[in-house]
């Protein structure tokens, strides 16, 4: 069943003014429950705007977007941001509980479970300032999973981390996702990362249209050292280069 359905979605900034600019154009796709979908594209292609529209922070200009929850009722959403966004004055565990609606035993143990899955169970009483950047981002990931969201939105969560830390976190994210089977929409500019993590990659081109919708059918867990993963990464990268070259020619002709 589709958790997220988007139909002919468009977004124009500064509607009705001379500065009007269309950032998303005729976007249609749906995301089935339990899948990991990445949205990639060069900077300025509107991928962050699309994420903001899905999350409800921003309004869209036309088209339809609908979210359904498995249990019925309003869909729960979880977020992982570029930066960890933890409350510095609350312990790691209290940060986990801050986004929860209740303090029941079950909720507490669920929060603990996800904290354990990112390897930070023993740091529950630490303040965020006592953790490294990578550890803080792991708390952010655990926090988002622990609300048991119908849809988990991730906005370039590894872009501020060094390459080695980011690789470790990607492996960890794969493990957690494999165990929890949440529906994830993951925005990134990094094709290599997208191939490693996703079931499906939606490529946006400059001007905010969908260029390609690629299904990644590789066994999990995927590791970067795996040659089949590397081959596919190279192939998708190549397609993206073609797209960039074409859009450059197009804008040169225009």
């Amino acid at each position: 069943m589709a958790v997220l359905t988007i139909k002919n979605l468009a977004k124009t900034f500064n509607v009705g003014t001379p500065k009007a600019s269309r950032v998303l154009d005729d976007i249609s796709f749906d995301v089935r429950g339990g899948t990991f979908v990445s949205i990639v594209g060069p900077s300025g292609c509107g991928k962050s705007t699309l994420l903001n529209i899905i999350s409800g922070v921003e309004e869209h200009t036309s088209g339809d977007i609908s979210l359904t929850s498995d249990a019925g009722g309003p869909a729960r959403m979880g977020y992982v941001f570029q930066d960890p966004r933890l409350l510095p004055w609350r312990s790691v565990m209290k940060n986990m509980m801050y986004v929860q609606d209740d303090r029941s035993e079950a909720t507490v143990s669920r929060a603990k479970k996800y904290l354990d899955m990112v390897g930070l169970a023993k740091n529950a009483d630490f303040f965020p300032g006592q953790l490294s950047g990578g550890m803080q981002q792991r708390v952010g990931i655990a926090r988002a999973f622990a609300v048991e969201p119908d849809l988990l939105l991730m906005d370039e969560p590894f872009s501020h981390l060094d390459a080695i830390t980011a690789r470790g976190l990607r492996a960890q994210l794969q493990d957690i996702w494999a165990q929890s089977k949440k529906t994830v929409v993951f925005v990134t500019h990094d094709v290599v990362e997208a191939v490693e993590l996703s079931d499906r990659i939606i490529v946006l081109q400059p001007g905010g249209r969908i260029y390609e919708d690629i299904t990644i059918d590789l066994p999990r867990p995927r590791r970067q050292t795996d040659p089949t993963v590397a081959t596919l990464q190279a192939e998708v990268l190549g397609r993206l280069e073609t797209m960039k070259a074409m859009s450059r020619t197009a804008s040169a002709v225009a």
Partner: peptide, 24 residues
């Protein structure tokens, strides 16, 4: 401000935001 956005994204009430973000 990013903590307030985070709180709103996770559906925290304005009272919770006052107590957990603004007051501290």
């Amino acid at each position: 401000k990013s903590l307030i956005t985070m709180s709103e994204a996770f559906g925290r009430s304005s009272q919770q935001i006052r107590r957990e973000v603004l007051l501290p």
